[in-house]
Design a protein around this nucleic acid. Structure first.
Ligand SMILES: [Mn+2]
Ligand SMILES: [Mn+2]
Ligand SMILES: [Zn+2]
Ligand SMILES: [Zn+2]
Lengths: 138, 138
DNA sequence: ATTAGGATGCAACAGAAGTGCATTTATTGT
DNA sequence: ACAATAAATGCACTTCTGTTGCATCCTAAT
């Protein structure tokens, strides 16, 4: 089992207290979080630091950004061994209209999408909206 | 052929000069537009009016909102007879990373997406990013 | 220990989205 | 035609997210 320190070092990122805390916060959450969520969890830390930490994580494929249609960017930890590769790592996301939570459905890869002649597909964002398992009473 | 006036009236919306102009503007564009785009096209009109006009159109299935991942909401006219129905009217959108344009691919309906047990799918947002036909040199 | 580069904190800004209220315009009833 | 009513528009202002510049602090390498 790789420690967080080892993960950060393997990506060439310095290990800092703030980064460890934010990583752990993300790891505990089962849902995608906004910058505000992190901000609320770390009241004494500066917004900018949290923002740049997330950006650093994102650039190094530690977290991926999720655009669930709420207009607010969310983030979630990548899976072990994820390289954010389009072919292998792209999965769908589910946004619940009741609780507002957005979750990664990492087991559900995005199907092949056909685009018209002349168009070149490089990336796909697929978000399903509806009612999540917790809110559907099941 | 239904006139714009007839369309608006059939939806129970009052026909105003502003609404006709905005509708025509949307009809001329082949791409999804932002509120700023409309604002720039109608310099003398107030932002709020444009905003509320688009919202009115949206509530009455005259335009649909598009979240292409740029963080800025875009809008496009619905097809003739569109009721924004999930089964029949949901289509995919393409966002070009070169020209920044987003287009409706109304012929490309969204495939059936499987979600885990307990989840209820009500809506799907599918955006393909890449290079559009005009920018791919084809 | 010194030094250089990265990390953090503070301030400020831009843009999008949204709301409240006053005013204008259109519709309806008399 | 006129008054009453309701909707549409315009103006001001606010909130929230995302972003950048710069100063300071910390850490790691030499
Ligand atoms: Mn995910
Ligand atoms: Mn569309
Ligand atoms: Zn839910
Ligand atoms: Zn293009």
């Amino acid at each position: 089992m790789e420690t967080i320190e080892q993960l950060l070092e393997s990506k060439g990122i310095r290990v800092t207290a703030m980064r460890l805390l934010i990583y752990k916060f993300l790891a505990e959450k089962e849902i995608a979080v906004t910058l505000s969520d992190i901000e609320n969890a770390f009241g004494k830390a500066d917004r900018t630091t949290l923002y740049r930490t997330i950006k650093t994580f994102e650039e190094n494929d530690i977290v991926h950004q999720i655009d669930d249609g709420t207009g607010i960017t969310k983030y979630a930890l990548c899976e072990q061994g994820c390289n954010c590769n389009i072919k292998t790592d792209l999965h769908l996301h589910f946004h619940c209209s009741i609780c507002g939570n957005t979750v990664c459905l990492t087991e559900h890869k995005i199907p092949q999408i056909k685009v018209p002649e002349g168009f070149v597909a490089e990336n796909v964002n697929l978000v399903v909206k509806g009612i999540c398992d917790k809110c559907s009473g099941q």
